[in-house]
């Protein structure tokens, strides 16, 4: 007797759980041959709202965590991804990649996670400063995470695009709500399973699937999203984001690198979603002493 294979339900990831979309709608992305790959959630604006609520709730704990511990957790994601590499390779191939390219993409994703896990307790030293001032103050500037960051992941990449955009943001202590690639969403959902089995607390990374067209306005106008990284390729959507962001004065950043490029990683991508806090700390007059800051 032939066995009916059990197909996986691709659900969204909000607050560490896998709910179905609130709207109950689905869409079927196609493979290269035009065959439906799977049924994937078509997220609505209410799903986005729920994800933002979860991200906001998780922000306090995540940003206050020791930087070193954030690094450990990101490293743990890399470990878990390594353990499930065959599944990712398989999904990448389902979505049209050849085996060699698929393997390379998974390798690069793991390496990129390790790369940013190393930066969590180092970017602060690079970008912070002690500022020379004329008064009796010790004046210093440090980076602080912005809060909840929305991400529109690259359309033409399933895994590496997702990792390259969201990981620097969470490495810097932000929480994210990411809209995965519409055409290539499978790895995003499987990546959520990796996150859940790593030590990543729920709500730090929330993953939605669906269309840019439907959600872009909500990403722009939602008052509780502090910044958005746009890695899509529709100029019109980018413009919509910028216009709607005016109301909440949120920062809009465009992701300009090619994520599949080995060099598409640097600490400036962490800095993109940091605010600078400058502190004037009164001290005794140190004029005349040898240190002249």
């Amino acid at each position: 007797m032939t066995r009916l294979s059990v197909l996986k339900t691709y659900k969204i990831y909000i607050g560490g759980q896998f709910p179905r979309t609130e709207s109950g709608r689905y869409y079927s992305p196609l493979d290269a041959a035009g065959k439906p790959l799977a049924n994937v959630c078509l997220s609505s604006r209410k799903d986005l709202r729920n994800a933002v609520v979860a991200a906001r709730k998780a922000f306090g704990g995540w940003s206050e965590r020791a930087a070193f511990n954030r690094g450990q957790i990101l490293y743990r994601i890399a470990e878990m991804l390594e353990g499930r590499r065959s599944q990712f390779v398989e999904e990448l191939m389902l979505q049209g990649a050849i085996e060699k390219a698929a393997n390379q993409e998974v390798d690069l994703s793991i390496d990129r996670l390790v790369y940013y896990s190393g930066w969590t307790d180092k970017y602060q030293q690079i970008f912070s400063a002690v500022n020379p001032v004329a008064s009796s103050h010790f004046n210093f500037s440090v980076l602080e995470p912005m809060g909840v960051v929305g991400v529109v992941a690259p359309q033409n990449s399933s895994l590496i695009g997702l990792v390259s955009t969201i990981i620097p943001i969470v490495a810097g202590g932000n929480t994210v709500v990411v809209l995965a690639s519409e055409k290539l969403p499978l790895c995003a959902v499987t990546f959520a399973e990796v996150l859940q089995t790593s030590d990543v607390p729920g709500g730090i990374i929330n993953i939605l699937t669906g269309t840019e067209k439907e959600l872009i306005e909500q990403f722009g106008s939602h008052m509780d999203i502090n910044a958005v990284l746009y890695a899509g390729d529709t100029a019109e959507n980018y413009k919509t984001l910028q216009v709607l962001a005016a109301d909440s004065v949120k920062r809009i950043v465009k992701f300009k690198l090619n994520p599949s490029d080995e060099t598409a990683e640097n600490p400036y991508l962490i800095q993109d979603f940091q605010e600078v806090k400058t502190t004037w700390h009164p001290i005794e007059n140190i004029g005349g002493s040898s240190s002249n800051y």
Binding site: R45, R49, V52, R56, Q218, S221, H222, M223, D224, D247, S248
Partner: peptide
């Protein structure tokens, strides 16, 4: 307003 709100305000 038609826009999701933030506790900041």
């Amino acid at each position: 307003t038609g826009v999701y709100q933030s506790g900041d305000y």
